[in-house]
Simulated scan of single mutants.
Amino acid sequence: MGKIRVGFGFDVHRLVEGRELWLGGIRLEHSMGLLGHSDADVLIHAICDALLGAANMRDIGYHFPDTGEEFRDIDSKILLRKTVELIGTKGYRVGNVDATVCAERPKLKPHIPAMQVCLAEVMGIDADDVSVKATTTEKLGFTGREEGISAYATVLIES
């Protein structure tokens, strides 16, 4: 049996008017979107950080700096694909992903199956190996006030 490792990722982006809302690689209809150098997909960014951490390869900002013009408004699915390729250079592949998105609105439950399929396709794994959960913060904190959205991800990688 090969080596297995786990990683944890976390990301936050501010909600603002005039931006599209991208979560888990899919566009959601909402009055606000996430602010960031890329498309600001917090779920994908948390997964990328978890994968990089599991492989002991620093973090998303190290590999895809927000000072890099080549990453301005980039589709985060490209960053996820590149992250999977990066961990592959150390002999790792994605085993499974377990992620949670914290947002008051929009309601994410109806979109979760599409997110799972999209993320699995990008990472080259089975949709059954991608768990996405949604929660609110019961109107508490910055997510509760709808100032932003946060995401957490735990991953297992194997060699």
Score class of each variant (00 low, 15 high):
H30Q: 12
L21T: 14
G18W: 03
F71P: 03
E69W: 07
D75H: 05
I44Q: 11
E158Y: 02
L52S: 09
A134F: 14
P65V: 11
D49M: 09
E158W: 03
E85G: 01
W22P: 00
G2F: 00
E104N: 03
L34S: 06
E20P: 07
A50K: 04
K109G: 02
S159L: 04
V97I: 15
R145E: 09
G141C: 09
E17M: 05
V12C: 00
D49W: 11
L21G: 14
A151G: 08
R27N: 11
G24E: 10
V101W: 13
A151Y: 11
P65D: 04
K133R: 15
G33P: 12
Q116E: 11
L86M: 09
L140I: 08
G25A: 10
G2L: 00
W22Y: 15
L43E: 03
A99T: 01
R93N: 03
G91V: 01
I26Q: 05
H111D: 01
E147G: 08
F8V: 12
R27G: 12
E20A: 10
C102R: 13
L28G: 06
L79P: 08
L80Y: 05
L21Q: 13
L23A: 07
C102Y: 12
D49H: 13
I4M: 06
E146D: 15
V6Y: 15
R93H: 13
H37S: 07
K133S: 13
M1F: 11
A153I: 03
T89D: 08
R19H: 06
R93G: 09
G2P: 13
D49K: 14
P113F: 04
P110W: 12
G2Q: 00
A134G: 08
K90E: 06
W22T: 10
S131P: 00
G148W: 11
P110A: 06
I4L: 04
E29I: 02
F8M: 05
T143W: 01
G25E: 10
I112M: 09
S31Y: 05
T100I: 11
V16E: 14
I26V: 14
L51G: 06
T89E: 13
V122N: 03
L140C: 02
G2S: 13
S131V: 07
T143L: 00
D59R: 09
E85T: 04
M123I: 05
G91T: 01
K3T: 05
A127F: 10
Q116P: 00
V130C: 08
G18D: 12
D66K: 10
V117F: 06
D49R: 15
L43Q: 08
G25C: 05
F142T: 08
V97L: 15
H37R: 04
G88T: 04
V132N: 12
A46H: 05
A127Q: 13
T137C: 08
G9S: 06
G91M: 06
A54T: 01
I60T: 09
D128K: 14
A114E: 08
